[in-house]
Simulated scan of single mutants.
Amino acid sequence: MRHVAAVILGGLLMCTQAFAGPQASGAAVGDKSVTAAHAKVASSQAEVDRLQQHVGQQESVSRDAAARLQQQDRTIAQLREQLKAAQKTSKKPVDGH
């Protein structure tokens, strides 16, 4: 009876060792995939940061261009007023002629 119990116990120990081996390598594979996922997240975050910086630069350029256009619109409006004033004075009859 003791011999049978020893054989069963030995068999159980061998089974636990057999199952423990793949689990350990499975954990290593899991660690690698987690590390790869972290690297992918870091890479994606760097790309997001770069794109946000680019968008910020483009917004700045756009604001500057809009400000220049507004200034040009004001200048055009002033020149139109000056032209109208000049046209009015040229249409008035000159005294003595």
Rank of each mutant, 00 (worst) to 15 (best):
Q58R: 14
K84Y: 02
S33F: 06
A36C: 03
L79A: 14
E59T: 09
T89E: 15
A24F: 04
G96T: 02
V94M: 05
Q17I: 06
V48K: 13
H38V: 09
H97A: 06
I8P: 00
G96F: 00
K84E: 11
A37T: 04
V61I: 08
S90F: 01
Q70V: 04
D64C: 03
T35L: 13
V55E: 08
E59G: 00
A20S: 11
D95E: 11
H97E: 10
A20T: 08
P93C: 00
A24G: 05
D64K: 12
F19E: 11
S60Y: 01
A20Q: 13
A66D: 08
G10A: 11
P93D: 05
T75R: 12
Q45N: 13
G96R: 02
E59L: 15
A27T: 07
A36Y: 01
K88Q: 14
A5T: 04
L83I: 11
R63G: 03
L69W: 02
V34W: 07
Q82K: 15
Q58S: 07
S43H: 05
Q72K: 10
A6F: 00
E81D: 15
I8N: 03
Q72G: 03
D73W: 06
G56S: 14
G26R: 04
Q82F: 00
R68W: 03
D95N: 06
H54R: 14
A37S: 14
I76R: 14
H97R: 12
G30R: 05
L79M: 10
I76W: 04
A85Q: 13
A42W: 01
V48Q: 10
G26M: 06
R2A: 02
V94P: 01
D73C: 04
R74M: 07
A39H: 09
L9P: 00
S43D: 06
R74P: 00
K84H: 11
Q57W: 03
E81W: 05
Q78F: 08
S90E: 05
A27K: 15
Q71M: 10
Q70Y: 01
A28Y: 01
A65K: 15
A86G: 12
A42N: 08
G11S: 13
D64R: 10
A37G: 08
A86Q: 15
S90Y: 01
V29H: 08
E59C: 04
G26F: 04
R80N: 08
V34G: 03
A85T: 07
H3T: 10
Q72A: 10
Q57H: 12
D64V: 08
G21E: 07
A67V: 07
T35S: 14
R2I: 03
T16G: 05
A66E: 10
H38E: 13
V41I: 13
